[in-house]
Design a protein around this nucleic acid. Structure first.
Lengths: 304, 304
DNA sequence: ACGCTTCATGAAAGTAAGTTTCATCCGTGG
DNA sequence: CCACGGATGAAACTTACTTTCATGAAGCGT
């Protein structure tokens, strides 16, 4: 298949539409009618069948094909696909996003959703960017080798702590989480060298968590802090500090995004630990997955 | 509010690919093979002819057509066009990031972090894109007006359920979460018209949650399902269905990203409800924040 | 003006792509 | 074991795309 008699440009960098309007004058009258339709509304043209487009341009299908070849396409289907792609790219991004700001009073749900999702996603991305792999590595190593792991957290961070505990447990690590300070303190007192204590606090100022971490450290356990603020009090009692990067604006949206960022960090540590002993972790995951199998209803298969 | 018995399907604003991956488990095996090809490389699929694609998926053209219909398209050409458009819009992931794939065996921490964060962020964004604000609005309305709200969830989704409960509680809504099925069932039995039951399940097949939601519905409560799979069993017992859009590959990474997506949805609902009565919600938040103030040590704010 | 050439054009034939129908197969539950 | 229902692909069928070819209009040299 060589011979491209007319022009040229098997590759038209500027965009197909631009390319077409560029060589518009060099086309025959009937082809020009087609071209004009296409340029005017590429998305619409992409939707039409060749017969349809030919009729709209008051010409025959043959001319449309000739037009396709003239602009460097193999045939009509290819043109269609390219047009669809082109039209899609051209759509302006939704923008108008409230970037990290608070939700305006009169906001409708769509705006709320866009704002929250945007901030959440950004918190996750930025957290990943600033996470220090070296520190993570050390933490992973400590956890992988630990005799016991205690995870502390209060309030919203408590959920994260609990989640982390559950994850570690699922891959066969001995991990605990205590919703109650007293119990947590007791547990921390029983930690020793080779154990790990993880304290999670968005603000880094939750006294309960700090206190427990302090206790754990005093007993010789390695302490890890996960907070959004690298200079907050909790970092003073931690051997390893991992930070999230939720730019908080109001306490509300800040707490929301930071929670996701914390979870992301937790997941990274989890996968890191699991990767240390792939075989064993996989096995453990399979076994635990199987355990809840009987609590699942048939597959999702179903037809409407 | 009027009966909107079952929403779903015909609206997939978030993006075709996302929509397809959500539907994946509800497709027949042969259709799934097609779906996987399409999701893996939309641009490539758009280039193929139907026969070609059928061959690649080791099935017949008929199945490809059936697949098109299953995901809400008229026929193959329409699918092709949509795929091309979709692929064009999608910004190619910067580099060798494992896109929704598993973590490669030899990965180092930096890679793990990048992969997880990328998938997490994408799940959040795509979830937001495909969330139907209208359905959210209805749910928000129901929750805002509810006498009582029960939130159900098991395993990882349990954390999310619990988080939602806590949030609602903080803005003065009467909300409950029960980690235990029996208690949950009892509670559901006591729900009535004007109450709301929210069931959270990533797979949509958790029988415990389905059962409880069913009970709640039988008692006249409005039922809400939050799942990743729009055709899973849980959606059959829900008046309102909200979906997340974590493209799951393995159960591990899927469960991780989906949790974040669920939280994002929960946050949206929460803010929506709070926005209904700004003054009261703000007041409640301030009061509750104050309540834990004594458990904080000096400010975290020492510098940025 | 005439005849010749060139080229644009659409009708129609031809081919390929997409769609429907239907018989078969397979697992499920009586 | 059979009846049933869904999944599936072969083949018939339809529609869309492509090619071929005849026509006629315009340019041009004589």
């Amino acid at each position: 298949m060589a011979k491209s008699p007319k022009i040229s440009a098997s590759h038209e960098p500027g965009g197909l539409i631009v390319h077409i309007s560029g060589l518009l004058p060099s086309l025959s009258p009937a082809e020009q009618r087609v071209a004009r339709l296409v340029v005017a509304d590429p998305a619409d043209a992409a939707r039409r069948t060749i017969t349809d487009l030919a009729t709209a341009a008051e010409t025959s299908e043959a001319t449309v094909i000739r037009f396709c070849r003239s602009v460097g396409m193999d045939g009509y289907p290819q043109l269609r696909i390219r047009l669809a792609a082109e039209a899609a790219r051209r759509v302006e991004p939704p923008d108008a996003r409230v970037v990290g700001g608070d939700i305006p009073p009169g906001a409708d749900l769509a705006q709320i959703i866009a704002t929250i999702a945007f901030n959440d996603a950004r918190a996750v991305e930025e957290t990943a960017e600033q996470l220090d792999p070296a520190v993570c590595e050390q933490v992973v190593e400590a956890i992988a080798a630990a005799g016991r792991i205690d995870v502390y957290g209060a309030g919203a961070s408590g959920f994260v702590a609990s989640d982390f505990q559950q994850k570690l447990h699922r891959i066969g690590r001995t991990a605990f989480y205590f919703p109650d300070v007293h119990t947590a303190l007791t547990s921390a007192a029983l930690l020793g060298r080779g154990d790990v204590a993880v304290g999670i606090s968005h603000t880094g100022t939750t006294s309960d968590v700090i206190e427990v971490l302090e206790q754990a450290r005093a007993r010789g356990a390695a302490t890890v802090a996960l907070t959004n603020f690298p200079r907050s009090p909790i970092t003073e009692v931690a051997d390893f500090v991992l930070t999230t990067a939720a730019r908080e604006t109001t306490y509300r949206s800040g707490a929301m995004a930071s929670r996701l960022a914390q979870l992301t960090v937790v997941d990274c540590l989890f996968v890191g630990v699991a990767a240390r002993n792939r075989a064993r972790a996989r096995k453990a995951l399979e076994v635990t997955a199987e355990a809840v199998q009987s609590h699942r209803v048939g597959s999702a298969r179903r037809r409407a």
